[in-house]
Design a protein around this nucleic acid. Sequence first.
DNA 1: AGAATCTTGGAAATCGATTTCCAAATAATT
DNA 2: AATTATTTGGAAATCGATTTCCAAGATTCT
Lengths: 344, 344
Amino acid sequence: MGKKRVTIYDIAAELGFTASYVSRALNGYPSVSPAIVALVKKKATELNYKHNSSAANLRQGHSKTIGVIVPHINQSFFSDAIAGIEEICFEHGHSLVICQSHESQKQENLAIETLIRQNVDCIFISVSIETQSTTNLEEITNNDIGLIQFDRYLDPLKSNIVINDNRQASFDAVKRMLNDGYKRIAFLGGPHHMKIFNDRKEGYIEAIKQAGLTLPDNFTVTNVLGKEAAMQMSRELLTAAEPPDAFFTVSDHQSLGVLLAAKSLSVNVPENLGIIGFANESFTELISPALSSIDQHGKELGRTTASLYFTKMINNTNASLLPEPVIVKSDLIVRESSAKINSL
Amino acid sequence: MGKKRVTIYDIAAELGFTASYVSRALNGYPSVSPAIVALVKKKATELNYKHNSSAANLRQGHSKTIGVIVPHINQSFFSDAIAGIEEICFEHGHSLVICQSHESQKQENLAIETLIRQNVDCIFISVSIETQSTTNLEEITNNDIGLIQFDRYLDPLKSNIVINDNRQASFDAVKRMLNDGYKRIAFLGGPHHMKIFNDRKEGYIEAIKQAGLTLPDNFTVTNVLGKEAAMQMSRELLTAAEPPDAFFTVSDHQSLGVLLAAKSLSVNVPENLGIIGFANESFTELISPALSSIDQHGKELGRTTASLYFTKMINNTNASLLPEPVIVKSDLIVRESSAKINSL
DNA sequence: AGAATCTTGGAAATCGATTTCCAAATAATT
DNA sequence: AATTATTTGGAAATCGATTTCCAAGATTCT
């Protein structure tokens, strides 16, 4: 019931030492002989001693906790990234507080507030679709908390950034489609304010340009994230006079929307319509036809993000080093949806 | 650089008050007039004051943090459950530390250790497949930390439990299959030591028995969790002399394995083989034929779990109340995979 | 007016680990 | 033997918010 918590003072008392010595023993200070360390540790487990991190954190001024904010934890890319982050953080004895923004600016702000109040040492964030202004992210650094943006990021904000080779990957994917015989490739992008989607768009445009093609302006459409929007838009394009013969999208959910639209219009995929998306969501290989996608190597990206914190930021002697984005390579995975028959 | 953190003492000094009064003002004590509260809050934001939770937690003896351990955060059920937990915890000003066990006993133990050291107030856990012994979970309660098991639980352990109506849901699903005309229904279950899978098995057995059927012993198979194991096992059964005409499984991944096996053997689903699984994983409605599944209402289950903590456990006057499992109803979602033609 | 009841506000202890600054005691060196 | 290093260990301050115990001043009641 009212049994008090066991502290280092209790250990010290039992052993005839003082608390400071016990603390040093427990933390592996060199000024304590191995024999004493063993003795103290034995007594600690014997008494069922439990280190109180609140006390330690208060004294030391940091919480050894990292906050992570993502739109949804059940999207392959994000859960992979979290797994990678988790791995590295655990290696360094840090723990993780994970929050979902559910693509809502409001919930994201709430998460930021919570994490600040929690005294996390650093926040890794992949911003929500709704997030346009940087003021809330600036709030983080204003509170002397570290900040790393990964995957989805706000450009105008000065912060460390870890992203994929979005432009190059998109360029390569579109080029691959062109090589496979698709000629009228449309692009379904995301909101204008998100650099990540613009990077992908640029890769697409560059590939088209380099192939010497000119496509209708309305083949490059932005702000159609999500299955529904993509389905509607692709339906529109596919039923027009001169429809596209392929779609390159910035997410697998969009690709799925395109596929559903194609099915409803009885357009054959991949014979008459190629599709490549982004993220390598787990469902892409389960559905039929299986969707080609760009694997972002989320786990690796997560590891890279966390490592960046531990190597560069934790001893920020000069915190104002200009932050060069760290790039993680991605890989195109070609499946049925972009395997045009006549290219086989 | 070395700018000190703003504390309530700074606010107090600026305002000519004392820290204790500021603290009470900030925490809405009735003994502080609204005018003063407003004044203090204004000054607080003006100075960019940041509440230090380590200090508060140290003093108050709790961390207002909940630890959650699940096998994988990217499975629909678990991410839904976490979303529900998150909702309720945030409402109560608590934050969440989420850990994945990756179905590994070792990683689960590591997570438990980390959470204990983090001084979480309570741990919500859905144990990994490998976890058979309760010793590590007992370690939690030994450290005076609350414990609620949800979904997957270890029976011999005395703890609060939140689960679905597994037995009833399974019974209903199998009964539905029988009504639809399936007669030789096989069961693919999980490890023997997990009560949740036994509950589902019992529901299956009860439905078969109540229908007056007797099926071969080898139609009730346990310990075949996962796509691969299920695929192999169903393949074996389907190629035997008298194969089943339906499978009831304890997870959608198993159902997927069955479906793949059926496809590879050119067995028509649902005409010649019905399939119903558990979890209502997002891919179930995307693939073809779409898989019937039991929706566990993960978010609701998560909410229920968290609410249980806040209502019952947080003021555990009598902590030794015998814990009756809390049940969350689930729903059968019938899709193509169990819609036998002649039943339509 | 005198007593009783609120209000408004302060002093100081407390939570538990860490860490700085010292002081013995022992060992090593000249 | 005297001096310098090196161990071994303690005293006490510190981190920042909370909270218990009190004390004036203001208000209401008999």
